[in-house]
């Protein structure tokens, strides 16, 4: 019977295969990239670069393993509309300029599908499973992105004990399904999540510390990952992207638009590891350019 004999840990690769994010500095912060056979969550407010990172990931997954990729195509499930096709094209152009990938169009290896609600996603899981077992392109599918998981749960649920219970059991169902797919096909699963503002100590358990940072700040406000404690139990690793506006002196070179003569406003972005079974606490600063998302050494 499958499943009831132990695995010999030496028979697996001693380091889990990772999928590059498309930037060596970001990869270094994550120990090589997004791990396969694992669910990684990206938490951030809107406009922080979650989607951009996911798009970039689905491109760099196509690189051969020698260059940090998985030689794989990806499935991009989006619940936020519209799908940023223009931006993907733009990133793809930069990607093709950076890597000589040969005779194929990277866009052909990114499969996009809309997801409207959590129930619908769960119902479609068998279809997704059969899609994974019969690859439609030259590459097997090894990356699944869900952008965003929070949007799937945004509208349908009331703040009643019954609905909250139904919601959290859906979390565990979806995550259980994703993890079993991740194991069966050795997938890197990335889900994005939104944040909610911290409403003070009487806001329930939202202020509960989860992970390496005591408080999360983005755009000068204290925030908490959406979907609460129950969902936090459903992912293997959690990353946080923050953005903060900063006023800097003129001589500091900056990618953002200037504001006035002597002062510039600059958005400083950071990627933090909140928790991950294989990573220590770490963070790195990054910028978003036309060509993609890149870490900066500072």
């Amino acid at each position: 019977m499958a499943g009831v004999s132990p695995e010999n840990l030496l028979r697996r690769p001693l380091t889990a295969q990772k999928c590059s994010l498309g930037c060596p500095l970001l990869d270094r912060c994550l120990g090589g990239g997004v791990p396969c056979n694992s669910v990684t969550e990206l938490v951030a407010e809107s406009g922080s670069g979650k989607t951009q990172l996911c798009l970039q990931l689905s491109l760099s997954a196509q690189l051969p393993p020698s260059r940090g990729g998985l030689s794989a195509s990806s499935l991009f499930l989006h619940s936020e509309f519209p799908f940023p096709l223009r931006r993907l094209e733009q990133l793809c152009l930069a990607f093709c300029g950076l890597h000589s990938i040969g005779e194929f169009n990277p866009l052909d290896n990114v499969f996009v599908r809309a997801a409207h609600s959590a129930d619908q996603l769960l119902d479609e899981m068998p279809q997704i499973e059969s899609f994974l077992s019969e690859p439609k392109s030259r590459f097997p599918v090894r990356v699944i992105v869900i952008d965003s998981i929070a949007a799937l749960f945004r509208s349908e649920f009331d703040n009643t004990p019954f609905d909250l219970k139904r919601r959290s059991s859906l979390f565990f169902k979806i995550s259980g399904k994703l993890k079993s797919l991740a194991k069966r096909f050795d997938l890197a699963v990335v889900v994005t999540n939104q944040v909610v503002d911290f409403m003070g100590e009487n806001g329930g358990m939202n202020g509960l510390r989860i992970g390496n940072l005591k408080y999360l700040y983005s755009s000068g406000r204290r925030v908490c990952p959406a979907l609460g404690l129950a969902w936090a139990n459903c992912v293997n690793s959690r990353l946080f992207l923050s953005r903060n506006e900063e006023v800097v002196a003129e001589e500091n070179s900056s990618v953002n638009v200037g504001n006035g003569d002597t002062l510039r406003r600059q958005t400083r972005r950071r990627l933090y590891v909140l928790f991950a079974p294989h990573l220590p606490e770490s963070s790195t600063e990054f910028v978003i350019r036309r060509e993609g998302v890149f870490g900066v050494d500072r």
């Binding site: 499943g3 009831v4 840990l9 030496l10 079993s180």
Partner: peptide, 18 residues
């Protein structure tokens, strides 16, 4: 590592079985 018998479980039925 070789002396850790590792079982990866994907459902509660598997968990009961193991």
């Amino acid at each position: 590592l070789e002396s850790i018998y590792y079982f990866r479980i994907c459902s509660y039925t598997e968990q009961m079985a193991v």
